[in-house]
Design a protein around this nucleic acid. Sequence first.
DNA 1: CTGTTAGCGCCTTCAT
DNA 2: ATGAAGGCGCTAACAG
Lengths: 339, 339
Amino acid sequence: MSIIAVAQRAGVSIATVSRAFNSPDLVMPATRHAIEAAADALGYVPNLSARTLRTSRSHTLGVLLPTLYNPVFAECLAGIAAAAAGTGFSILPATTDYDERREQQGARALLARAVDGVILTVANAADSATLDHFKRAGVPYVLAYNRHADHPCVSVDGRAAMRELVERLLRDGHRRIAMFSGTLAASDRARQRFEGYEQAMQASGCERELIEVPFVVSAVDTLVERLRAPQRPTAVVCSNDLLAVRCLRAAALAGLAVPRDLSVVGFDGIGIGADLSPSLASIAQPNERIGHECVRLLVDAIERSERPCAADSLTLAHELRALESLGPVFRKPTPGVPR
Amino acid sequence: MSIIAVAQRAGVSIATVSRAFNSPDLVMPATRHAIEAAADALGYVPNLSARTLRTSRSHTLGVLLPTLYNPVFAECLAGIAAAAAGTGFSILPATTDYDERREQQGARALLARAVDGVILTVANAADSATLDHFKRAGVPYVLAYNRHADHPCVSVDGRAAMRELVERLLRDGHRRIAMFSGTLAASDRARQRFEGYEQAMQASGCERELIEVPFVVSAVDTLVERLRAPQRPTAVVCSNDLLAVRCLRAAALAGLAVPRDLSVVGFDGIGIGADLSPSLASIAQPNERIGHECVRLLVDAIERSERPCAADSLTLAHELRALESLGPVFRKPTPGVPR
DNA sequence: CTGTTAGCGCCTTCAT
DNA sequence: ATGAAGGCGCTAACAG
């Protein structure tokens, strides 16, 4: 079933059929209708490969994300998929598992598939071989979650968000506020969030405490130990929700009630957080919307035969989801004996 | 950069270059090497669209899943993506949000993209317009999670799994075991799991209790109410982990300690379950592996120009993950006053 | 406004 | 074992 059959049935040439689909206003309404009628009488579906071969436009967006095991990215991908569906682009997802090599492989695979653009999250936007790769190849791209002045990004201001959060905790009476994070070296986002924590703490004169755990590893044990010590924190801010969930668990294992003895706040706003008990307070990012906006930015640029540039970057609003794990105000803890 | 440049540089015809890539044994080792050398000296990457246009093989697998907000499917998709990457197929994901219309749309979109095969999870394998659609179009497909004698499926035996679980709970001394499920009409899997529950309960002579909640809705309230009643269940088995998480929350809100006062077991084995507190007991499905096997089945068939058939179906082993929310044995509850 | 025509890059008979 | 040549379905000049 090709354009030819449609042309014959409609009694026009194939060029007209092509035009009727691609530049409808270039063809007389009458003939256009005849063509449309013929097309769906025959169940004609344009052949994307032929079109791609001819135009070297694949109408495909590559998506390179760290992992789908973190709901943040799954949610973002859902947003991307939904947005793409509305634009006639399809998406080609790949995950990197936070592995530099897999990131490169993924990039190569996407390039081989001739994607028209790429949406990706990298470890360090400031210095990413993968990013260079796309840049060199002239492939339009947008970063999701990463924030960097030199690249087009769709993100929230993690630094400010974390600063505000810590300021609020300080206002609530907390003094020993620790930050729980994955390896800072492995993620510019975690670093930016840490900076926000650092700034607020520094301004307050309170002592900072960073509990950094090697990536992926559960790290609950480290935390339990820390939470059992006499000078334990009264609040823990986490660089992401998955860590915050573990923090909740560590608190339970350490015999602390959340939020009575300890406030816990995550970052990301993954959906399941609200269903936990205590429900997980979090600095929520609009994950789905981030996906949407990435697609919009990218597709807009592509359709103008351009590439998104740093100036197109979007900072979306975050929202402190003050759920149960964030205590209302801090009451002086029973010293020594928690629980 | 096309096959022509490679041919010139290697001093052979384009036909030979094509063969060197597709049927290496048809060309002399010497010329083959020359071609390979030329190819990667030039950084040649075959043009998939041209190949697809010529062979009408897109080397793309459609993936139609209910949602990525449920980690089960995100995990499965990760498995699919990983497996596909190893086979030269790429994947084209779409989600349906459990909506019949979106399911149809998705199917149409995949068909329009000329996917070579489809991996999907439908509401009811026994009667699915979407499935018919693919069947009629002659598109090879494999069902993930669904189980039905007439279709190729990769799944675990949910009925048996649930039966075993309930038998174990009965052995542990539980008598009032309730099942917590989404709308049974909306999912054949939930129905099969319920059947397992039903069988075991019936055999034991204990009274069955199905707590069915409308899809998507949080349903915590319904459950809290039920758990506060005097004749409350001592164990709740859930048709999936997301519901089980809500059950955990409902228990907390009802003032019940899990597992002391109530055992809760989910279904699916989503990764985050193990990090909760109490950690979520669950009948774990090998989600990633389900994805892998779907790809394998489908690709094998496609490469033989066939379609997977019902006889190819795979039943993978499930595993009862007996984590904290499943109490060791049941101790008679303080009647009337829980907590 | 519509038709004719020349490829896009590749695979695949058919010869040799 | 290799080469020559046709055509997959479509778009984009170029004519008319």
